[in-house]
Design a protein around this nucleic acid. Structure first.
Ligand SMILES: NC(=O)c1ccc[n+]([C@@H]2O[C@H](COP(=O)([O-])OP(=O)(O)OC[C@H]3O[C@@H](n4cnc5c(N)ncnc54)[C@H](O)[C@@H]3O)[C@@H](O)[C@H]2O)c1
Ligand SMILES: NC(=O)c1ccc[n+]([C@@H]2O[C@H](COP(=O)([O-])OP(=O)(O)OC[C@H]3O[C@@H](n4cnc5c(N)ncnc54)[C@H](O)[C@@H]3O)[C@@H](O)[C@H]2O)c1
Lengths: 217, 217
DNA sequence: CATATCTCGATATTTTTTTATCGATATCCA
DNA sequence: TGGATATCGATAAAAAAATATCGAGATATG
């Protein structure tokens, strides 16, 4: 990995922030300013941005437009990835309807499900197809990205179908660790993990654990 | 912070895995086994689990049921947190409909929106209320957790309303960093960050970058 | 035109997190 | 019963990430 995972995760934040600046007509920015607004230390931002290959000017900072372009290029958001989504339920529907993904190089082209009631429906302009067709279609359409928003129980099985269809990367919203060949990129989006942090911190606060844990943060 | 953030994030994974074991009738487990299934090294798991205060037995491992209970207690999933959700759109609807959150100590009790068409509707058994009522109701009902699934532009404004209503923790799905008093816990669920990692790795694979930058990994 | 100041980029240090090592102990099996 | 073995818990080492420091170059100001 050429870039630390945390840096990679911060890049979209910068991207969003920079777009706000651009919208305001600001066209040059320094790490100190970003840090002030985003609550990060300037050195960290500088390091993160260096991975994109952009260079700044002392005293001035970076050109906003160039920086945005550099991040987009670095993240591969310029060449759109087409994706299949499996599990046209609550969450799947939300993702299907999210236009803004296209800004980030993602276009969901079709949904798949096993529920006969769902199959054949159109959701947010995308057709729901029977799961059996996935592998074949993925191959024919050269789809490389799969999104899993089906129940945890079926996730492994779906992943295998995806792999057999030549899919290379899986964005998995089901709370299971998928067992796939090592060359397949899997990214688990575990909402329960986030929730866990949150509820722990909140519980911590209300329990008033003997000693207010330094109260540092 | 008494526990590393990454450990905190892994606990729900263990929880989910342990429940699967329990369902299979397995009632004792070792870190080696967990590690095998979850693709983690046993030492790390042992360390993570130690934060929950549970103790295992040499040679045997841990009692599954006890471990599950320990994690739940540690994460505060026993005393249910009631929450308000703001932004009854695509994503908000998905979250409102997700029954399983209750297993993790989260109960969304009401939704709020500014859209007159949404207000008054029932979504997955929860009423959509006008945003103006949020602060007042939060105070009266002692709600401590707020979920933001509204557009990024309004997120800051919504956060302020939440804070004024006495809400202590915010689960923010909008891609902006919220500016709130330091004592407020904010957890940003940035789906674009995840997507960024994924698309970077995928782009990396297809670009076959003319191996500057070491290209080591 | 000189000087003060700001910010970059590189390098060094500190902190955090992951991984390795090792003795102690519970269980299994001969 | 006694030895082999697996696994825990604690401590140590290594790796990764965050933060600090500093010289150099750009810009503004007097
Ligand atoms: N909705 C949320 O807020 C939320 C939050 C966190 C995690 N998740 C996870 O996301 C996943 C989906 O959640 P949801 O709320 O959308 O569930 P859902 O029940 O609304 O949707 C699941 C969909 O998957 C389909 N499905 C079932 N078995 C299938 C199979 N074998 N192959 C293909 N499709 C199949 C169902 O027909 C349904 O359309 C779950 O794993 C859930 O744990 C959801
Ligand atoms: N849907 C997704 O898959 C997805 C993915 C990533 C991020 N997000 C983020 O989640 C948020 C919501 O996404 P969505 O797809 O549900 O959008 P959406 O447009 O479907 O829903 C937004 C909802 O917020 C309401 N709203 C607008 N202004 C409001 C205000 N001032 N106060 C209260 N409510 C207000 C709207 O009436 C609407 O019901 C956005 O910030 C989006 O960037 C969504």
């Amino acid at each position: 990995m050429g870039i630390p995972q945390p840096s990679l995760n911060r890049l979209p934040q910068y991207h969003h922030y920079l777009n706000q600046l651009k919208a305001k007509g600001i066209n040059t920015v320094s790490c100190s300013l970003i840090g002030l607004d985003l609550n990060l230390v300037p050195v960290q931002i500088r390091k993160d941005l260096q991975y994109t290959g952009i260079v700044g000017k002392p005293k001035t900072g970076y050109a906003v437009a160039e920086l945005i372009a550099a991040i987009e290029t670095f993240l591969g958001w310029n060449n759109v990835q087409e994706a299949f989504l499996v599990g046209a339920g609550n969450l799947g529907t939300a993702l299907l309807g999210h236009e803004r993904f296209s800004t980030f190089g993602l276009r969901i082209v079709a949904a798949f499900d096993t529920d006969p009631e769902k199959i054949g429906q159109w959701i947010h302009g995308k057709m729901v197809l029977p799961l059996e067709k996935l592998a074949d279609l993925a191959k024919r359409m050269s789809i490389h990205l799969g999104i899993i928003t089906a129940p945890a129980e079926c996730a492994q099985w779906i992943a295998e179908k995806m792999v057999s269809g030549g899919i290379q990367a899986i964005w998995n919203f089901a709370p299971v660790r998928l067992n796939v060949p090592p060359e397949i990129i899997v990214h688990n989006e575990d909402l329960y993990s986030s929730l866990a942090s949150l509820s722990w911190k909140l519980a911590q606060r209300f329990n008033i654990p003997f000693q207010q844990d330094g109260g540092s943060n």
